[in-house]
Design a protein around this nucleic acid. Structure first.
Lengths: 146, 146
DNA sequence: AGGGGCGGTCTCAAAAAGAGACCAGCGCTA
DNA sequence: TAGCGCTGGTCTCTTTTTGAGACCGCCCCT
């Protein structure tokens, strides 16, 4: 177990660098992550990583996103340089969204998380059920389940 | 039927699997990602990946989080099985938060994104500045920049 | 006896997100 | 030719989420 501590220690520096050396207020990671932490960002990134899509296609692909949030999230993603927005002067002007190189690069990192989620969603849901059950039990009585 | 070009099929399947086969509404990824998409989740995960922390320590580590959000985010993380909460019956009862095995596993995937963010925040900020500049220019005139 | 740290919860205000109306322009079709 | 729907959005309204900060009991320290 002590060897594990040593192992963690060497990694500690990596995390500290991420988090700004112990102060999590002004670290670059945070600035970048905030842009991806939106409810729809990663979802749209996953969709656009698959292939370029038009506005209406995305809307149909993600039925429970509002146009407002779709517009805004795409705009945020474009602002951060992940997404390219191209307007085609067709008769009804169509707009196509696609990933930029930066976006593809970022998705390469994001993908790990998505893959993890895909593999472990059972474990997460089990944990959730366990927690909710414990909470329900604890609602009426403390320490009902030992 | 459509004149749409379909290629890169092999890669497509990977992303489609993530996104639930083309329907992004009921995919497991989404369920899991939503839990991490909060403003503070990844930040707290990064902190706890470094080492276990107590409530007050986390609050000091992330000064601009409110107690409310700290409590709630930690609770969410605990519910999803990423974080373990242990109360020590010391005189002022202290509470320590640490990552579970599932949490460490998840952080292994999240870390890629954090590392990417660390490496590429300059590019993102540059993109942001470019975008904001273009918007400022376009505010008074349409298509000012060709 | 008073102040502060402990880990929260509670209330209230502000910000963000969701629902859905509305817009202009064009093609289809009835 | 009058409607209807599709194009990509914006605008308003309501609901949810967040943020700011007061408040809680408990105990130690001075």
């Amino acid at each position: 177990m002590d060897s594990r501590i040593v192992d963690l220690k060497s990694k500690l520096d990596v995390y500290k660098a991420m988090t700004g050396g112990g102060n999590l207020s002004d670290c670059p990671v945070r600035d970048v992550i905030q842009g991806l932490s939106g409810k729809w960002s990663s979802l749209l990134m996953a969709a656009l990583a698959e292939q370029p899509y038009r506005f209406g296609e995305l809307r149909r692909l993600v039925p429970d996103i509002s146009q407002r949030m779709l517009t805004q999230t795409l705009c945020d993603l474009q602002r951060d340089g992940y997404v390219h927005r191209e307007v085609f002067p067709t008769k009804p002007p169509s707009v196509e969204y696609s990933l930029t190189d930066l976006g593809r690069s970022m998705f390469g990192a994001l993908r790990h998380l998505l893959e993890w989620a895909e593999l472990n969603h059972d474990a997460v849901r089990a944990a959730r059920a366990r927690f909710d059950g414990a909470m329900a039990g604890a609602a009426g009585q403390t320490g009902a389940l030992a």
